[in-house]
Amino acid sequence: MLTRPNALFSEIGTQAIERGLADPVLSAFFETVMTAPRGEVQQGLKPYLPYLSLCSDKMKDGAPPPIFYVGRESGQRTLFGEDWATPTSPASGLRTPDPDLERASAEGYGKALDGTPYYGYARTEVHVNGETFEVAFERLIVAVRPALQSSVRFCAYFGVIQDLRRTS
């Protein structure tokens, strides 16, 4: 019997995007961010905001940074639902509802915050509202500054769900 791990998070590298192997909208976003003049990334983000989740640059205890914006067409909103994406008290930032997913996904954010855009593939089980799903997705994480002189930076996460199945 063939067995496979419950979770797989694999960095593919941005060369795959450059070779045309990524989702076309994700690829266009990557091209826009990488070719934007320094300090002008903010304008380039606007057309892609519906697909993005934005989070801080503060990672604690090996967890990804808290999310402060979830686009209406983003993979995270699709997976975790409208109620999750529009919290009643957003001041502290959002966390994904699955702690195992949080731990497994953190490495990509760390690499992006260290200065290298992260592009990878993941397949994992996710637990949401008492149900279990198997999800496969590609994801791009880039750290950006809203303006050249800005001391603030944040992560832009572009995730594309390729397969989603409820298993319980």
Rank of each mutant, 00 (worst) to 15 (best):
V25K: 09
L26S: 08
L26G: 04
S27P: 01
A28N: 05
T32Y: 03
T32S: 14
V33K: 06
M34V: 13
M34K: 15
T35D: 02
T35W: 01
A36F: 07
P37L: 11
R38S: 12
V41I: 15
V41D: 06
Q43N: 13
G44R: 13
G44I: 07
G44M: 10
L45N: 01
K46A: 11
P47Q: 08
Y48F: 14
Y48I: 06
Y48E: 07
L49D: 05
L49S: 09
P50S: 12
Y51T: 00
Y51L: 13
L52G: 12
S53M: 14
S53Q: 14
L54F: 06
L54V: 14
C55I: 00
C55D: 11
M59W: 11
K60E: 12
K60A: 10
G62K: 05
A63F: 02
A63T: 02
P64R: 13
P65C: 13
P66V: 02
P66E: 08
G71R: 10
E73W: 01
E73K: 12
S74I: 01
G75C: 02
Q76H: 14
T78K: 13
L79N: 02
L79E: 07
G81R: 08
G81W: 11
E82R: 13
T86V: 13
T88D: 08
P90Y: 10
S92F: 01
G93D: 07
L94K: 01
R95T: 01
R95S: 05
P97Y: 00
D98I: 03
P99I: 04
D100R: 11
D100C: 03
D100E: 12
L101W: 01
L101S: 02
L101F: 04
E102T: 03
E102S: 11
R103Q: 09
R103D: 00
A104I: 02
A104T: 04
S105H: 04
